[in-house]
Amino acid sequence: MHWLLRLYPRAWRERYEEEMLALLEQHKITPATVVDLLIGAIDANLNYSGMVEGVAGMVNRLRTSVVMVFCAFMLFGVGWSMLQRLTDPLNQFNAVATYHPEFRVLFDADFVAGCISFLAFLIGGLPVFFISLRRAIKRKQKNVLIAFWGRAIVFAGKHPCYGGIGELASCRVCIDTH
């Protein structure tokens, strides 16, 4: 059960871990106990650590959350990009969509949802990006700047409009604008 208690925040463990372990040694462990401890860990992470660790702890937690959201969006982006290949080759997709218009509706809905989430990500993320970039330039943090430019080059390389590995047909924005 010790591994389950590792899911609790550090501040909580410092205060309650030893007595909880003593209790678990006496308690009959069932699947309900494991589920209960998992829910307890989520609750403790949401409600306990911030209050005890103070502002510095909350800032760290906020930073971790931002990174997690960023990673989650990247994963979403991978799935979304793959779905955009559904139209490839376009004539076959059009033929299928003629008989089953729900495919086109679903594809368009997915495309719109992806665009909205990307916009939301930009609105939320650009201020953070610019603050980080400005700080990196001010402090001359070359490693951070290289990471930023590296991402930009990779993005440009993957995008079909910049001669990347994709085909023009895969980018709906490009189809509409070219």
Partner: peptide, 11 residues
């Protein structure tokens, strides 16, 4: 009461 609920309430 399971331990997770007990200690959530104690906290």
């Amino acid at each position: 009461l399971e331990p997770g609920t007990l200690y959530g309430a104690i906290t």
